[in-house]
Design a protein around this nucleic acid. Structure first.
Lengths: 301, 301
DNA sequence: TTGTATTATAAGTTCCATCTATAACAAGAT
DNA sequence: ATCTTGTTATAGATGGAACTTATAATACAA
C-alpha cells in the first residue's frame, strides 16, 4: 500500500457512490458518464480487494468494508475541502461569480427584486440565475453543484443538506378593490367557499397547502383558474371577482385589499437549503447571510 | 472550489514538499522527477492562489498559507491511508512480499540468521533484502519506501520516523584462545592500550563508539586493522594476537574468550526505525513485532 | 418471457502529467 | 565581479490512463 501510487481522486467517487447508491446518478453528481463511474468503482475494488458495493434491487448496497471506510473517507475529504475553503479569499465588491438558485412556486417574485437590488449595491459582479428543480432532484443537483441554493418548504431532509428557516408569512385572502365581499370585515367559511378562486402553482399536480388544509376539514373550494406564474395573478385579480389565497406580503406589495381566512392554516414557511460541501465556502456563506438578511427585511414590511 | 475538479493527488506532493523543503529530494521520495514536482507545485499554487513555498537559501520555505494548510492535509492523508491499511488483510503464512532493511555496522550478522530461520517457519514466502543506507539518507529512503526498516543507533530523530529500542548489549574485549593477556582476569587500561586492535566499520570515516570514548579520556589505541565486514574478524582474531572490542554476544557466538573493558562505555544500543506512514500497515506491524521478538531471544542468550 | 431499469465491458480518443533537456536563479567561494 | 554548485522553473514532446460512445450483460418486476 502506498499513497503515492494511489489515485486519491477515486475517493471522491467512492463518497458519491456511497451517497447515491446508483452509478448513473453518481455520474450525474460527478459530472462524468456512468461507464466512467463503473470503471472508477472497479479500480476501487482492486485497491481494496473488496466488492465495496453489491448490485441489488435496492441499488448498490455497501459491503461491510465500504461501511467501515466511509467515515474516514468523508472526514478526509472534508479536511481537504477545508484547506481550500479556508484559504479562499472572498471580496464581494470584486468577486465575479454566478449563484444558481432553485426557487419554487411563489417565492421568486418576492425574493429576487430585493436581492438583486442588494447585490447591485455591494457586489456588482455577482450574478444570479434561478431554476426550478423538482424537490426529489434537489439533493442531487445541490450535490453536483448544478444548483447552489434551493428554497423550499421544510419537507425533505437529505442528510447532506444544510438548511435554515428563511421566511415565514401568514396566508390571507386577497380580492380586487371594491369587491362586494369587502363589505364584511370578517369572512365566514361560507363566504370563502362561495367565492371562485385562483390557484398558482408551477407543479402540475395536485393540492397546494390551502387545498390540503380544506381537504382535511372535509371541504373544497372552487378553483376557476390554475396558473403557472405568479405574475399573472394580480392582473386577473384586479379585473375579476376571483379571490386568491396567498401570503399577506403579496397584498401589501400590490396594494390589494385582504381579509383574514375563515380557517386555521399553518403559515407559509420556506427554508434555504445548501449542500454540506459548501458549508464553509466563503462565497456561499456570504450569499447565505445576504439572503437571510434580505428576507429578514421582507418579513418586517 | 470543487473537490471533483481538484486533483487530490497533488496533496501528497504538497505533504512531501513540506517535509523535504527541496523539490529534488521530494521528487526522490515521490518517485518522479524534479520538473514533475515543480509542475505539481505550480498547480498547487494555482489552486490555492498562493506561492505556498518560497525559494531561499534554506530551501523551499512554507508561506503562512502553507503552514495553515499542512495539518489538515496530513490528517486527511492519514485517514485515507488508514482506510486502506485497515482493510488490508495480512496472512504471514501466505503473504508474498519482500522487506527491505537498512542494517548498518555490526548488526547484520547477528540479526539475520535468526530472523531468516523464523521467517522460513511461519512466513515461507516473505523475503528480506538488506542494504546499507547512510544515516543522513535514511529518513528519505524510508519515506520513499525504498527501505522498509532501518536499524541504527538512536541518534537522528526525523519527526516522521517511529522507533523502538530493539537491542542493547555491553561491549567487551575479545582475543584468541591462549592469548597471553588471558592470564589476567581483569584488564587494566595499560594492558588494553598496549594491545593492537581491529576495528570493524563500514563507515569510511572516523571514530567508532569505542575510539570516541577513549578520545574523551584523552587516550587512543593502536588500530592495526580496519575492516569493512564483520565476517573476517573472527578469522583474524583467531590467527593473531589482535584484540577486537565489540559486543559480548559476538564472543559467546563464536565461543571466543573475553574480558571486561578497563573503562566505562555506554552499551551498544540499536533502534528499529520505520516511517510513520507504515505505522498501521498490517504487514509492517507484523514484521516489526517479529523483529522485536527475535531480538528479544538474542538478548537472553 | 418480456420490458425497464440498471451495471459492466469494449474500442477508440483525448488530454494532461510526466519525461528529457535546458534555462534561470540563489548564494557562497575565489 | 565572475565562477561554481545546488537548486527551481520553463519548453516541447510523448505515452498512458481515464474519459467517451456504443453495446452487452444483468437484475428484477410485470
Amino acid at each position: 500500500m502506498n499513497l503515492k501510487e494511489t489515485d486519491l481522486n477515486l475517493f471522491v467517487a467512492f463518497d458519491v457512490i456511497y451517497n447515491e447508491r446508483n452509478l448513473t446518478k453518481a455520474g450525474q453528481v460527478l459530472g462524468i458518464t456512468q461507464p466512467a463511474v463503473s470503471n472508477a468503482l472497479s479500480r476501487l475494488r482492486e485497491l481494496f480487494d473488496d466488492e465495496l458495493f453489491i448490485r441489488s434491487s435496492k441499488g448498490m448496497v455497501p459491503t461491510p468494508v465500504a461501511h467501515q471506510i466511509i467515515t474516514d473517507v468523508r472526514n478526509a475529504l472534508f479536511l481537504i475541502q477545508n484547506t481550500i475553503a479556508e484559504t479562499e479569499k472572498f471580496d464581494p465588491s470584486t468577486a465575479e461569480l454566478t449563484f444558481k438558485i432553485s426557487i419554487g412556486d411563489s417565492s421568486e417574485y418576492r425574493l429576487l427584486p430585493l436581492l438583486i437590488k442588494e447585490l447591485a449595491e455591494i457586489a456588482p459582479n455577482i450574478k444570479v440565475e434561478t431554476f426550478f428543480v423538482s424537490r426529489k432532484d434537489a439533493a442531487r443537483e445541490l450535490a453536483a453543484g448544478n444548483v447552489d441554493f434551493s428554497i423550499d418548504p421544510p419537507l425533505q431532509s437529505d442528510p447532506h443538506l444544510r438548511q435554515e428557516k428563511i421566511y415565514e408569512e401568514e396566508y390571507v385572502m386577497i380580492v380586487r378593490k371594491d369587491h362586494p365581499i369587502l363589505k364584511k370585515d370578517t369572512i365566514t367559511m361560507d363566504d370563502y367557499l362561495d367565492l371562485s378562486h385562483i390557484h398558482i402553482s408551477n407543479r402540475k399536480t395536485g393540492f397546494g397547502q390551502v387545498d390540503m388544509t380544506l381537504y382535511k376539514l372535509g371541504l373544497s373550494r372552487d378553483i376557476v383558474l390554475r396558473a403557472q406564474h405568479f405574475l399573472v395573478a394580480p392582473y386577473v385579480v384586479e379585473q375579476s371577482d376571483l379571490a386568491i389565497t396567498t401570503t399577506k406580503g403579496f397584498a401589501m406589495d400590490r396594494n390589494l385589499p385582504w381579509r383574514k381566512l375563515p380557517f386555521d392554516i399553518d403559515p407559509l414557511v420556506l427554508h434555504l437549503y445548501w449542500h454540506e460541501s459548501k458549508e464553509s465556502d466563503p462565497s456561499s456563506r456570504w450569499m447565505r447571510d445576504l439572503m437571510l438578511k434580505t428576507y429578514g427585511k421582507l418579513q418586517k414590511s
